[in-house]
């Protein structure tokens, strides 16, 4: 069994980091993982994406035509990747910045205003962790306690951001819990 999660958005939205935290959590649970960034000449405001692969056996190809899930932080990312996602995949839409739909009926689409939630918490930069919390709550791709542990490890040396991001994770989880079940 293997799943792939595409995180995509603007450069500067913390796309690579949320992917890395998820990969770390999956590794902690004993899975094989692979994290692949887009490493073109991306910069703040440009496009950025990363692909996290999680598997119960050695991972072969690091290149995947149809990922299982998508976390879309901005509109160009949704337009680019939603058509590629495997049927029944979870697609998180950052509804603060994206006014359109995924355009498909065969996906589990969840719309969450992650940017607005992060702003309410006091820092828009935590939107990536809000999204991560919501995505993991919906997809159950890793255990939430493992995820908490890994977000903590990621920020433990950045004291000013630790509680912000731990709260962001919980708010993301709550937002996903309030949605109707699949």
């Amino acid at each position: 069994m293997q799943s792939e999660v595409m995180f995509a958005g603007f450069g500067g939205q913390g796309i690579l980091m949320s992917g890395k935290v998820l990969a770390h959590a999956a590794m902690e649970e004993g899975h094989e993982v692979l994290w692949m960034p887009s490493y073109g000449p991306e910069m703040r405001g440009g496009t950025a994406y990363c692909l996290v692969m999680i598997s119960d056996r050695l991972i072969g190809s690091p290149v995947v035509r149809n990922p299982s899930h998508l976390v879309a932080m901005n509109r160009p990312s949704l337009e680019k990747f939603a058509p590629l996602i495997k049927p029944a995949g979870v697609v998180l839409i950052n509804s603060s910045l994206i006014a359109i739909d995924a355009g498909r009926e065969d996906l589990d689409v969840i719309k969450i205003p992650v940017t607005a939630i992060a702003k309410e918490l006091g820092n828009v930069r935590a939107a990536n962790i809000v999204a991560l919390g919501a995505f993991v709550e919906r997809s159950k791709i890793v255990g939430f306690d493992t995820l908490r542990h890994c977000v903590h490890e990621e920020f433990v040396n950045k004291k000013n951001f630790l509680s912000l991001n731990m709260n962001a994770l919980e708010e993301g989880k709550k937002a996903a819990e309030m949605l109707p079940k699949k």
């Binding site: 890395k20 990969a23 993982v33 692979l34 994290w35 692949m36 960034p37 991972i59 690091p62």
Partner: peptide, 10 residues
């Protein structure tokens, strides 16, 4: 190659 250098694995 670029991929071996850039990707993360355990």
């Amino acid at each position: 190659d670029g991929l071996i250098g850039q990707m993360m694995e355990p």
